[in-house]
């Protein structure tokens, strides 16, 4: 039947086919007029019977900085996988703004819509220079033929310099990324995220392996990004969470256990029991 449905979908009379549509950037399609930029509703993911996400429902407001905490296996990374298109849920819906159904899109399409992700384990292109890492991340047309003939414009060069400044890797611009320290790689990945100029940032454990000073600067950076961008941070470091969080969501066994500001959450008896209790 699905074939027939696809036919019907293709020949619906009231629609404009994709290839006839003018090319919009995501700002044109993204509709956050109702407040939230991300809607996750009843999302369930199971691996061989184990439910990594269990009817998870979560909304992220536009311009918000949200921290998500939870024990190992609470489903934090799986949630990010679902949002970025890496894992398809068994059921549930994930909408980006009012109109964009993320479950129908592939990872690159989702990334092109302005959803950037920093991985738990810093993943940078180790064989490339820091500069190239940033260049590749830059928001631009990423189709094959345009990429083949792409040259850096002065403006883009400036943007790269700017980000190099922010992440403090100006002197390492021509160094192979594989040779950076763990903390520097974290910064580089944050830099790559900035280069993407995303609307929604998903940041998985950004301060692991950073010094106290660096942690502070990361907190500063993330706070400054909020407002213009929406930021979702997954973190274990409670000090760090306390220092940046306005709203905290606690995940437990794949669904939301509690939500609110840091103090409310910390005083929640259920949270104390499963997470902070010890």
């Amino acid at each position: 039947m699905s074939g027939l449905d696809k036919m019907r979908e293709t020949f619906r009379r009231d629609q404009v086919w994709n290839f006839l549509m003018p090319r919009y950037t995501y700002e044109d399609v993204l509709d956050t007029s109702k407040g939230p930029i991300l809607y996750l509703e009843d999302v369930t993911v199971s691996f061989d019977g184990f439910r990594a996400l269990d009817d998870l429902t979560l909304y992220i407001n536009d311009g918000e900085l949200r921290c998500i905490i939870g024990a190992n296996g609470a489903g934090k990374t799986t949630m990010m996988d679902v949002i970025t298109g890496k894992t398809r849920p068994d059921h549930g819906s994930v909408f980006y703004g009012q109109r964009i159904d993320l479950l129908r899109l592939s990872e690159p399409e989702i990334a092109a819509l302005g959803i950037g992700r920093k991985f738990q384990k810093p993943t940078v292109f180790e064989q490339h220079d820091v500069l190239v890492n940033l260049e590749l991340s830059m928001r631009m047309d990423k189709r094959v033929w345009t990429t083949l003939s792409a040259r850096l414009s002065g403006e883009q060069r400036d943007r790269i310099d700017e980000v190099l400044e922010i992440i403090g890797l100006k002197n390492e611009a021509y160094k192979r990324a594989g040779l950076l320290s763990h903390g520097q790689k974290q910064w580089l990945e944050i830099g790559m995220l900035l280069m993407q100029d995303p609307r929604l940032l998903l940041v998985d454990e950004p301060v692991a392996g950073m010094t106290g000073h660096e942690t502070e600067r990361t907190a500063e950076l993330l706070t400054s990004l909020a407002g213009q961008h929406s930021v979702v941070v997954v973190e274990h470091d409670m000090e760090f969470v306390r220092s940046i969080a306005r709203t905290v969501t606690v995940l437990h066994q794949g669904s939301v256990l509690a939500q609110g500001d840091m103090d409310t959450v910390q005083n929640d008896p259920r949270v104390r029991e499963v997470y902070l209790g010890d």
Binding site: S106, P108, R117
Partner: peptide
């Protein structure tokens, strides 16, 4: 070219490249 650099990026971390918006 930049395409060459994307391709090397694919070799080293395919997933990461995809999350940057490249149709690997």
């Amino acid at each position: 070219s930049k395409l060459g650099r994307v391709v090397v990026a694919v070799r080293d971390s395919e997933d990461r490249t995809r999350f940057l918006g490249y149709r690997v």
